[in-house]
Design a binder for these strands. Structure first.
Lengths: 195, 195
DNA sequence: ATATTATCTGAACGGGTGTTCAGGGCAAGG
DNA sequence: CCTTGCCCTGAACACCCGTTCAGATAATAT
């Protein structure tokens, strides 16, 4: 027996990625086996290797895709306006973007150490590029004379850590709506940079 | 052959805990085997079971001990003064305490999902108790009329996330000294709550 | 209708996993 | 000096790991 009814690359491929994403986020990369992923998809473990060269690449490509989408979507959102407007847009973007992708975020921040050295380097570079977007906004605000930020590098990390922490408690069915969360965090961010 | 020269419970026990702490922090609980821990200590894997009932308990007891020490040390630091003073003390305590314990923090935040349900519940309760310390300070500041904090619960999580993020970039041999870091973060925290 | 190709199965590979335990050696107590 | 008991070894247990691959089948192209 072999190829079963309805089998198709364009269906199975995304299903494998979705299953891996979900399971990696839930249990961690190291704790999830290829056989578990295969079972979730309804396929034998060997079939996964039609879609990924190995387990490491499955993790890496999920993280890479996430970071690429993050950077692309971010760039559109923060290119216009004065520093305060751009900062507001960045905060709102970060929160909104991350709320719909809890699993991706979790993996992007938790599984860095399970990447091979060269894969780690690639993801780390993208992560730094994202930080640089915020740092550029803070520096622009300093130049405009509207922000009170003694150390833009540290402030960048502080703000991103604060915003990303939302994923540890936010639930779609919780007490706060996304706009309410965005507003709360924007006010904290705004005040912390002295606007 | 069996008991080797120099073997002793009071030496081996802590060495096992130290090795597990280091390896869990470096590679993650699921990626570290009992044989790796044993090798780090210079002992056979079977010997570990004189000191821990199983691998899960080894992780749990490390996390539990960390949380207990965190809560005890914290309580001493924030019991006196007005809300602003207590907030300042909390921020400084959190940063100082965490800087010397990078491995413990890493595990406490990253390995929650590898705890058994009942162990998770225990640690989660302690974590919430720690959050409650900060939330009580914020609420006290509201009562005193000195803080501008629309939502103390969310603000608590935001501040803790921001402060804990330090562990992802701080290095003892880096550009900033601990007091400088503490000062930078205190100013951001202070401004974000409107003081 | 037939040939080709894409897709999947099922078994196998070598090796690693957490954990148990009988037995042996070291140190301390009588 | 001899016994007692703690500490450790080394082998074994049953099972799971990532990965490979020959062979079988379904869909597609001719």
């Amino acid at each position: 027996m072999a190829r079963t009814q309805g089998s198709h690359s364009e269906i199975t491929g995304p299903r494998i990625r979705a299953a891996a994403l979900k399971l990696f986020a839930e249990h961690g990369y190291a704790a999830v086996s290829m056989r578990q992923i295969a079972r979730e998809v309804g396929v034998q473990a060997g079939a996964l290797y039609n879609y990924t060269p190995d387990k490491q690449d499955l993790l890496f490509s999920l993280m890479k895709q996430h970071m690429d989408e993050l950077l692309e979507a971010c760039a559109d959102r923060v290119k216009d306006g004065d520093a305060t407007t751009r900062l507001h847009n960045f905060v709102d973007f970060h929160i909104t973007f991350h709320m719909g992708r809890a699993d991706e975020i979790f993996i992007a921040y938790m599984e860095l150490r399970n990447l091979s050295p060269e894969n780690f380097h690639t993801i780390e570079t993208l992560r730094r590029a994202y930080e640089d977007v915020l740092e550029a906004i803070l520096t622009a605000g300093l130049v405009e004379g509207v922000f009170d930020v003694p150390n833009p590098k540290v402030t960048t990390r502080a703000i991103i850590a604060m915003l990303t922490g939302i994923t540890t408690w936010y639930r779609p069915d919780g007490a706060l709506s996304p706009p309410e969360v965005s507003d709360l965090y924007w006010n904290m961010t705004r005040k912390s940079v002295g606007v």
